[in-house]
């Protein structure tokens, strides 16, 4: 996807703002799956917008165990919080092959000074990231294993629906069982069991990198999911809740 297309799908930006952001891109970078894009503590002077694929923010423990603390989808800024922080307290890695658009921090500074409305929208994105982080903490701290996966799948469906990469019921999620285990704080065997339980309950099936939700309302109930913390546009939430199916874009 091109920058303009990715930004358009999110329906946050005006045409002029999309043009400003596209003009701010200095280069494009591609990574294979399972590459480290940014290391914790490294000095950074650019922000990256994810155009294609999935990216993780993760923290590695001293025991070598990894915890995924966020997953970014196309249209997300991967490291906008690095603009004021100048380095990250976590690693960023590609879960799939990815394409990124790079925007230098000095251009963000220029936007901040010349276009406060656009700067406020960029700020909005980072605080939505924080809202999602809070929900991920809730998920790990309060939900049972099967609820954690149900919640994650509902969240991913809603986020991908908002950018046209889910039709509301089906979406590509090329994550391994190990990735899902890292997201949910479970072992891969436990994830396997939970996936079977979701299938047996008639809520959703997962195979070959794709998810099919059979009963979204039931999956939402089980996962205690409500999409308010994603701060999606009202019309997106209405269409999603109503079970409206959407035609997928070519990239979907």
């Amino acid at each position: 996807m091109a920058v303009e297309q990715v930004l358009r799908s999110r329906n946050v930006w005006t045409r002029e703002e999309r043009a400003i952001l596209e003009a701010a891109v200095s280069e494009y970078r591609s990574f294979d799956a399972r590459a480290t894009i940014l290391r914790r503590g490294a000095s950074i002077e650019v922000a990256t917008l994810l155009l294609e694929g999935f990216v993780s923010r993760h923290v590695d423990g001293r025991d070598g165990l990894r915890q995924l603390v966020a997953m970014q989808a196309p249209g997300d800024f991967v490291d906008l919080h690095g603009y004021p922080l100048k380095s990250l307290d976590h690693d960023v890695g590609s879960l799939t092959p990815v394409k990124l658009a790079v925007i230098p921090h000095w251009k963000l500074w220029q936007i901040q000074n010349e276009n406060p409305d656009l700067a406020r929208k960029l700020w909005f994105l980072t605080v939505v990231d924080a809202a999602i982080h809070r929900k991920w903490m809730f998920r790990l701290g309060r939900l049972k294993a099967v609820q954690r996966l149900a919640h994650f799948l509902c969240e991913t469906n809603a986020r991908l629906f908002a950018i046209g990469l889910s039709d509301g019921r089906r979406f590509a999620l090329p994550l391994t069982q190990f990735d899902l285990a890292d997201v949910c704080g479970l072992t891969s065997v436990h994830v396997n069991r939970v996936m079977r339980e979701l299938r047996e309950r008639g809520l959703c099936t997962m195979r070959a990198g794709s998810v099919e939700i059979l009963d979204f309302a039931g999956l939402m109930r089980l996962g205690a999911f409500e999409p308010g913390y994603l701060y999606l546009n009202d019309d997106v939430v209405k269409r999603l809740s109503a079970g409206e199916k959407m035609e997928l874009s070519e990239d979907g």
Binding site: L140, G141, R142, L143, K144, A145, V146, R148, C184, G185, L186, T187, V189, H190, N192, R193
Partner: peptide
């Protein structure tokens, strides 16, 4: 508690999820 693929899974109460 349940057995799965040669390991033991403990599910609940609360958010307990251990293999």
């Amino acid at each position: 508690a349940s057995a799965e693929e040669g390991v033991v899974i403990l599910d609940g109460p609360f958010s307990v999820a251990v293999t």
